[in-house]
C-alpha cells in the first residue's frame, strides 16, 4: 500500500465537525468534473490510491477513469462497502428483510421467505457474497487490490460476535477478486483479536488514529500498545480528528507511531493536499534520519 491514500469524504459532504462545511463541500463537488480535478491534483502530488465508498456517484467517476486508461494506468482504487446510509435509510423504510430483498439481486429469496425452513450458514454467506458482487460491479476493469468493509458493518458484526462473516468476507474477496480484504473500524484492538483468532495474519485494518483520541475506543494508550506489540497493517484515518488538530501536529503524531503502513486523508484544495502530503514525508524523513 502507498504511504498516503486519498479519501473521499470531502466529495460526499461528510464532515465530522461541521454540517455547514458539509454543505459547502456538497456545492463545490456538485459536478463529477470537480471530483476528477481534485483526484488529478492528488495524483500530481504523488498520491495514486483513492479509497472510496460505493456511493452512487462513484459509478460515474469509474466510467471516467475507465475511459482514459493511459492517463489512469497507475491509478488504484480501494473500494469501501457498503455506502452505509443507502442501507440505513432503506432499513428505516423497509425493515431488515425488506432491505435484503431489495438489494440482493436475482430471485435468491423467492422461496426462502415463504417457508419455515431454517436458514443455513451458506445462505447468509451467499447473501454477503451477492451484496459484495453488487457493490463491486461499478469497479469492473479497475485496479482494486484492497477491498474494505465499512466500519458500521464491521463494528456491527463485531458486537454481534458474527466473526465468521468477517472472516468469510476476507476469503471471498481473495477468491473472487484476487484482492486483500481490509476492515474499517472504530474498535481496532477488539477487531484485531477477532481476525487473528479467525486465522487472518497481519490483517489490513483502517481505524481512527489521531492525537486527540477521537473515535479511538479505549483511548490512545490502548491503540499505541497494539501498534507497538501486535502484527497488523494499519491505515490511520481521521488523523486530523475531523479537523480539530492542526495538520502538522496531526502528522507528527501518526508518523511517529510504529506499524502504520498508510495514512488516509481527504482534502478539497490543492494547497491542503500538498501541505498535508509534505508533512507526512517531512516527518517520515526525520524518523529515518534519527
Amino acid at each position: 500500500m502507498e504511504r498516503v491514500i486519498f479519501g473521499d469524504n470531502q466529495f460526499f459532504a461528510v464532515n465530522h465537525i461541521s454540517d455547514e462545511k458539509s454543505r459547502a463541500q456538497s456545492i463545490k463537488f456538485k459536478e463529477d468534473s470537480a471530483i476528477i480535478k481534485t483526484l488529478d491534483e492528488a495524483r500530481a502530488v504523488g498520491i495514486n490510491t483513492f479509497m472510496c465508498t460505493t456511493h452512487d456517484r462513484i459509478v460515474n467517476i469509474c466510467n471516467i477513469i475507465r475511459s482514459q486508461p493511459e492517463k489512469y494506468k497507475d491509478f488504484t482504487i480501494y473500494p469501501c462497502m457498503p455506502y452505509a446510509h443507502k442501507y440505513a435509510n432503506a432499513v428505516t423504510e423497509l425493515g431488515i428483510t425488506g432491505t435484503i430483498k431489495q438489494y440482493v439481486p436475482g430471485n435468491f429469496f423467492g422461496s426462502m421467505f415463504k417457508g419455515g425452513v431454517a436458514f443455513l450458514s451458506k445462505d447468509y454467506l451467499s447473501i454477503m457474497e451477492l451484496l459484495v458482487d453488487a457493490e463491486m460491479k461499478m469497479f469492473k476493469n479497475i485496479n482494486t487490490p484492497v477491498i474494505f468493509l465499512q466500519n458500521v458493518i464491521t463494528d456491527l458484526l463485531l458486537g454481534l460476535r458474527a466473526d465468521e462473516v468477517l472472516i468469510a468476507f476476507y476469503h471471498y474477496v481473495k477468491k473472487k477478486y484476487n484482492a486483500e480484504a481490509g476492515f474499517i473500524t472504530m474498535n481496532m484492538p477488539k477487531l484485531l483479536d477477532v481476525l487473528e483468532k479467525g486465522g487472518i495474519e497481519n490483517p489490513i485494518i483502517c481505524a481512527s488514529i489521531n492525537k486527540a483520541g477521537f473515535r479511538m475506543s479505549g483511548g490512545n494508550d490502548v491503540y499505541e500498545d497494539v501498534l507497538k506489540t501486535r502484527k497488523l497493517r494499519a491505515i490511520a484515518m481521521q488523523v486530523l480528528g475531523g479537523g480539530a488538530i492542526h495538520p502538522k501536529e496531526a502528522m507528527e503524531y501518526v508518523c511517529g507511531l510504529p506499524n502504520i503502513e498508510s495514512i488516509l486523508f481527504g482534502a478539497s484544495s490543492k494547497a491542503n493536499i500538498e501541505s498535508t502530503y509534505n508533512y507526512v514525508h517531512a516527518f517520515d524523513q526525520q524518523k529515518i534520519n534519527a
Binding site: 458500521v152 463494528d155 458486537g159 477488539k190 486527540a212 475506543s217 479537523g243
Partner: peptide
C-alpha cells in the same frame, strides 16, 4: 467548539459514541 473536544470516549463504538 466541536464534537472532537466534547466527546467522552467509549469502550465500543458503533456508528457514534
Amino acid at each position: 467548539k466541536n464534537i472532537t473536544e466534547l466527546t467522552e470516549p467509549v469502550n465500543f463504538n458503533l456508528r457514534g459514541e
